[in-house]
Design a protein around this nucleic acid. Structure first.
Lengths: 152, 152
DNA sequence: CAAGTAGTGTAGCCTTGGCTACATTCCGCG
DNA sequence: CGCGGAATGTAGCCAAGGCTACACTACTTG
């Protein structure tokens, strides 16, 4: 997961169109695998800001999953170096986790703002942004920001 | 997954924000589970248009996965009533599969067009749209189309 | 018609992200 | 201090979506 260059590319002599296509799908797949981590990190940041700590139960409730699911996810976040946690204690962000949280939060706001600026109702914008945001590349994000700036 | 009302909601007196949040994540999760089906259905439609049939190998190549992965996916598509297939024969869309393919293709075009209209380079637009499109609701899609129409 | 190769199918394994059920720890309160 | 309930951890299950390895079918072609 942290090593996307192990993706097998068995047929380099395939049609350029097909190669592009599989790349596109592969990229979408990778983005999806990062999405959950991003959501957790952002949420942990929110909870720490609100309560000084992020508890498993609160994370579970906000994510709409059960607590063992959160425990598993936190284990993965630890492996990725995004959070630190001790048994029966809360979960906290590392520096890189905090950085990711900031980035994700900013991107989320931008996507929502863009949708609203295009006439999407705020609640729908919030809903759709939750899924879309993880697939918005840096380049596209900047285009969004440029549009919003242009718009006023 | 098909039965979201079994989700434990132990604390109905929690902040309204929290309830909304879990709904958002739940919706994003559902959308993600449909995404692959949509991609396959669209691709099958493309291949049938091009070659008169969709072969497992071609699907595998275009999706950037191996053929057993496609076989599994096709089994799921069959279960969902989106395709019909016989062993060692190609894969074909049912009526509902074809309808989904049309819808997905149109949505894909709209999302790409919108990104391009906002100044995203075409290749990036294609890449990002692949992931984003599955999370674009009907309402948001219409907002996109309205913007594009307004734009000319 | 008989090979041989390309295409499919099947088996079995892995990881992720869900879940339930049960065990354990922590903490506040009597 | 001890006890009970809430929070957390752990075990084990499932489905989905990857993979490799191996078996079988079908088609082309000599």
């Amino acid at each position: 997961m942290t090593d996307p260059d192990t993706v097998p590319e068995p047929a380099p002599e395939t049609l350029p169109d097909s190669a592009e296509t599989s790349d596109r799908f592969a990229q979408a797949r990778t983005a999806q695998s990062v999405a959950l981590l991003e959501d957790y990190v952002e949420l942990i940041g929110d909870l720490i800001a609100e309560h000084g700590e992020a508890r498993i139960t609160d994370l579970a409730q906000r994510m709409g999953v059960t607590h063992p699911t959160v425990t598993k996810a936190v284990a993965r976040l630890r492996r990725e170096g995004l959070v630190i946690s001790r048994p029966y204690r809360g979960v906290f962000l590392t520096d890189s986790g905090a950085a990711m949280a900031d980035k994700v939060r900013a991107r989320h706001r931008t996507v929502v703002s863009l949708l609203v600026a295009l006439g999407v109702p705020p609640e729908t914008a919030e809903l759709d942004a939750e899924g879309m945001e993880h697939h918005v590349s840096e380049v596209t994000l900047q285009a969004f920001e440029a549009y919003l700036a242009r718009q006023g």
